[in-house]
Amino acid sequence: MVETGFTVYLLAGAGVFIIGFHALLAQAHLLRRIMALNVMGSGVFMVFIALSARTAGEAPDPVPHAMVLTGIVVSVCATGLALALADRLQSVTGATELEGGPAPGPNAGSGGEESHP
């Protein structure tokens, strides 16, 4: 078993990951699902950082540290792409969710930027 101080962070990372995962499947609105993905990602990064800090006494392990930086950049890109796609989807179909979304009206896409759940 690892030192308790870091175990807390590792467990918290696992918890955050699962909260995001649960929300991803439980929520319908695309904006919430994209946020859920970000929460999931934060959980993974937390685990990486805890692993990086785990080297007791010495300097932190730079390898997982650098991996997190890479992961964060990828996650920012994923979020940007997903948001642009969600917006395009809404402007073409009028839908803000995938399952059971509203049928496209004749004026879909011409109106407001966002629909609030």
């Binding site: 078993m1 690892v2 030192e3 175990t7 590792l10 467990l11 990372g13 696992a14 685990v47 692993l51 785990r54 080297t55 007791a56 392990d61 390898v63 997982p64």
Partner: peptide, 10 residues
């Protein structure tokens, strides 16, 4: 996570 090695490799 709880089963990770006690001697942290890195």
């Amino acid at each position: 996570v709880l089963s990770l090695p006690a001697q942290p490799p890195g």
